[in-house]
């Protein structure tokens, strides 16, 4: 296996090869973009996706460091990262379901009780009007038969 040529800086120290440096910067850029999305967007599902994007950037950096070191530890670490990311995604989607059940919305600004006391409450817009469908008037089926009777709930919601 050949070792990629190294870049000698002016001070004579051995630097990271420029091709691998490029890949490291791509990883860092993925992390930065994911961070921007996580901090600005308001959809809970989009926040999960942005977190995953940040993890991709970290994985890319770890793999590149492992390649530089001629060591499999970087890739082993990334496999663990993948495992934790799967756990995180599962738990986060379950949380999103629970939050959606309470608020009937995916807006993250509905959940600002844990803010600092001196920070102003973020504005919550009124529920947006349903956008007009681009298909015009959609035909509906004629109602037929009797209204279904509502079945009694077996269990009362727990207090």
């Amino acid at each position: 296996m050949e070792v990629s040529p190294m870049l000698d800086a002016a001070d004579g120290l051995v630097r990271i090869p420029a091709e691998d440096l490029r890949t490291l910067v791509v990883g860092a850029a993925l992390f930065a973009i994911g961070a921007i999305g996580f901090l600005t967007r308001r959809n809970l599902i989009l926040l999960i996706l942005c977190g995953e994007l940040m993890l991709h950037g970290v994985s890319l950096s770890l793999v590149t460091f492992g390649k530089l070191q001629n060591n499999n530890e970087g890739q082993a670490f990334t496999i663990f990262l993948l495992t934790i990311a799967a756990c995180e995604a599962g738990l986060a989607l379950a949380l999103v379901l629970a939050l959606y059940r309470s608020a009937r919305s995916l807006d993250v600004r509905l959940w600002t009780e844990l803010r600092e006391a001196d920070v102003a409450l973020a504005p919550i817009d009124a529920p947006a009007a349903v956008a007009a469908s681009s298909y015009g008037e959609i035909p509906k089926l004629t109602p037929a038969g009797a209204e279904p009777a509502e079945l009694p709930r077996r269990n009362k919601p727990r207090k």
Binding site: R41, D107, R109, V130
Partner: peptide, 20 residues
């Protein structure tokens, strides 16, 4: 979850983008 109410307001807006 998201498509039930059409285009939602929280998808059309974002927080302070420039400083972030």
């Amino acid at each position: 979850l998201a498509q039930q109410s059409g285009a939602a307001g929280y998808d059309q807006t974002a927080g302070r983008a420039a400083p972030t």
